[in-house]
């Protein structure tokens, strides 16, 4: 579970990093992708890889739509307008999916039938191990992309200083658009894995995905990929513990209380001291 959250948080962080704006429609875009995946499954009995590709594709297309309408079209400096606009689009996506899939809940194909396996004395569900492994591979690939390619350099330049990047000949609009689609695709993968373990989907998943990704990102520290991973894992562990000891309602209470406490005590998050310090410095600048 934690690795799914970590992937969600990475997607969030990518968008926030390049845009410095919050995309509330991130979860709902993923939800659109997941529903597209389930459509392929129900209609054509598609295999798991087709469902995965469909999910990622659906999420990326929905993400592109959100980016064009809420971020590209609204001028710089109107961050709140972008956020509210992404919320409006969220309602659109949710209702669109509800109309297309009127039954509210649908079956989602599981990864397969797996047995519990013993790992270092703990019994672990095998698909969780697979999830963790794939998440690790993805993070590695993303790291390579961000630090070894021209595109990655451009993304990092834009998130450090969009104006400077513009002067250095980076096409910021394009970079933002591509990063947005990349983030949505990562979200699609995360959505696929979370759904494959839950096996039931509803349009409310959009809300959940936005929340979990947001919490994990804030716990780790905004704009930091390692922070997002740490935040996602921490959130997964805390939720499981709270659920085990106090029941399902307390799972979510624990998540939000943890976030609230973290923001007050350590607003920079687990791993992003330098980002927080930079934000503070920017505020203090006269």
């Amino acid at each position: 579970m934690g690795s799914g959250y970590a992937l969600l948080a990475i997607g969030f962080t990518l968008i926030f990093g390049v845009l410095r704006r919050l995309n509330l429609s991130y979860g709902p875009s993923i939800m659109v992708g997941v529903f597209f995946g389930t459509f392929l499954f129900i209609q054509f009995q598609a295999g798991w890889y087709t469902v995965l590709v469909g999910t990622v594709l659906g999420a990326a297309i929905a993400g592109a739509y959100v980016e064009r309408l809420c971020f590209w079209a609204i001028k710089k400096g109107a961050a709140v307008a972008s956020m509210v606009s992404s919320f409006a689009v969220w309602m659109q996506l949710e209702e669109g999916v509800t109309i297309a899939f009127p039954d509210r809940t649908y079956e989602f194909p599981a990864l397969g039938d797996f047995e519990l396996i013993e790992l270092a004395g703990l019994s672990v569900r095998q698909e969780h191990v697979i999830m963790l492994g794939i998440a690790a591979i993805l993070v590695f690939a993303l790291h390579q992309l961000l630090y070894r390619t021209r595109f990655g350099l451009a993304v990092r330049a834009v998130s450090e200083d969009p104006n400077a990047a513009l002067f250095m000949g980076v096409n910021t609009g394009r970079v933002i658009f591509l990063a947005f689609i990349l983030a949505s695709a990562i979200g699609g993968i995360a959505g696929y894995f979370i759904m494959a373990t839950e096996e039931v989907i509803t349009p409310k998943f959009g809300l959940q995905a936005t929340f979990k990704g947001l919490i994990a990102m804030m716990l780790g520290g905004m704009g930091s990929v390692p922070g997002a991973i740490a935040g996602g894992l921490l959130l997964g562990v805390v939720e499981k513990q709270a659920e085990w000891y106090a029941g399902a309602v307390w799972r979510d209470i624990a998540a939000f209380m943890l976030l609230f406490a973290f923001l007050i005590v350590r607003p920079g998050g687990l791993l992003a001291q330098h980002t927080a310090a930079r934000d503070l410095a920017a505020l203090r600048r006269v």
Partner: peptide, 21 residues
Amino acid sequence: QGYRMIAFGGLVAVLLIFMPR
């Protein structure tokens, strides 16, 4: 009825493009 959110959401999104405040 049934398409209200789609219509309203779109309206808000377009409105905010032209009037961000």
